[in-house]
Design a binder for these strands. Sequence first.
DNA 1: CGGAACTTTGACACATATCAAAGTGTGTGG
DNA 2: CCACACACTTTGATATGTGTCAAAGTTCCG
Lengths: 265, 265
Amino acid sequence: MKMNTTVRNIPARPRAPVASAMLNEPVQIGLCKTICLSCNLRDLCVPCCALTRLEKDAAERMVFSRTRVRRGEHLYRCGERFGALFGVRYGFFKSVSLLKDGRDQVTGYAIAGDVMGVDGIGPERYACNTVALEDSEVCVLPFAGLLALAQEIPSLQRHFYKMMSREIVREQGVMLQLGSMNAEERLAMLLLDLSKRFAAHGCSSSEFNLPMTREEVGSYLGLKLATVSRTFSKFQDDGLIAVQQKFIRIRDRVRLELVMGRGLV
Amino acid sequence: MKMNTTVRNIPARPRAPVASAMLNEPVQIGLCKTICLSCNLRDLCVPCCALTRLEKDAAERMVFSRTRVRRGEHLYRCGERFGALFGVRYGFFKSVSLLKDGRDQVTGYAIAGDVMGVDGIGPERYACNTVALEDSEVCVLPFAGLLALAQEIPSLQRHFYKMMSREIVREQGVMLQLGSMNAEERLAMLLLDLSKRFAAHGCSSSEFNLPMTREEVGSYLGLKLATVSRTFSKFQDDGLIAVQQKFIRIRDRVRLELVMGRGLV
DNA sequence: CGGAACTTTGACACATATCAAAGTGTGTGG
DNA sequence: CCACACACTTTGATATGTGTCAAAGTTCCG
């Protein structure tokens, strides 16, 4: 039963964010088109889906790049000047915000197909730190370019609005409930949310790696490390899931959904 | 010390949402322009701010209307077809979502200057119910018209993105913290958030009406009615606030901020 | 004035935080 | 290649905050 897929957690090895470095190596759209077709984001990646039905002349102006972010590296930091959105191609990121008392709060996570950086549009500076918890790769989507493109392609503009709206609704739903949920409901929600999001990209929805530490999970769910651990143990004892460190297998989705209970209709 | 400003809470008197009725009485932009100049939303109201620097020919195509929503009436209901955003001119709305177990969860509130309906853009149906808790008035902003207008006016498009981004950031910040805050921190956060939002429109930031019931406040904050009441009492005993039913006066903002403690930096 | 809705307050139960100690896995250096 | 150090996890015992249940008090409106 030993799992070698589990990864050691990230030692404290802060590095410079890669965001600025990335912007130096733009890729012409012509090259990108082929890449996008094989990209696992497909119609989830904002520009990719739009580009397929794009008139070539408009597309020619769209320039972007991709980059790898290794485990433990920052994608961007809070306060940095906003310049681009990022589409996750593969990997796992956490978003953390600094609290007044100096501690970190995990405010979200992103996996393949998710878009990061939306928090920076309003204030024109990124509003949180994003750190790769696994070796990851992102599409860099310079915002100015996206805006210009959206200006000419109504379907793309609408796509953006939908994406952001979806983000708002998801957060309203997922986050606000937290306040009224107990530990088991919270953890069940996280596992099922992860499962659903993995499934949306063709990954296994019943087995996946959760590269956050128990403490990070607790920070995200508003629980203490010890409570998270206890709840994992209880779920395992009850036969709902199998846990091997960071590797999670959902054994009884139906009962797990029952535990989550009161979600939005 | 008796306050006559307090309002009786809303009896159960469901009516048809006003959203559909409103759309029948469009107002040409020419008329609206003068209205907008005296509108208390000013640069917070999305179209108003854009319209001032708008070429007249583009503006002529923009048509919208305003409408009153009386206390207890719905502005829109969950599942209704999405057609418009709403800018609150004055009043107070709550957003409620139905949980699986049949109970309501208050997911947000809106006061003058806030925009409602963003939750509907993605799914093309509104994702929650919005109810006026005071007699209110909103600007109706047909989304198709906004899209068309934004297509031609880059500054307006950018304005939308910023508005939505801000919404996302605010929710991330406000909501996610809830999970790890205790009752006093939660209530302090609500009061200070309200205060700040009132101040942003020239309303008093130290005295205001909070037309939600203790139960609704509890639903929003993830607390029980009894706990909310107790916490109000404690704040009053400690001299932080003065409470007269729904009327709140902040007596010691500094200490209230200390109670809130760990917010985002 | 009476009834309905809402609020306040008390007593007790229960879930989670806290503190603490032992256990496990991983990467590094000898 | 092994052993050690470190980071992370699990588990137990106790403390504390909030939920639950209940009863009395208040305000508002018809």
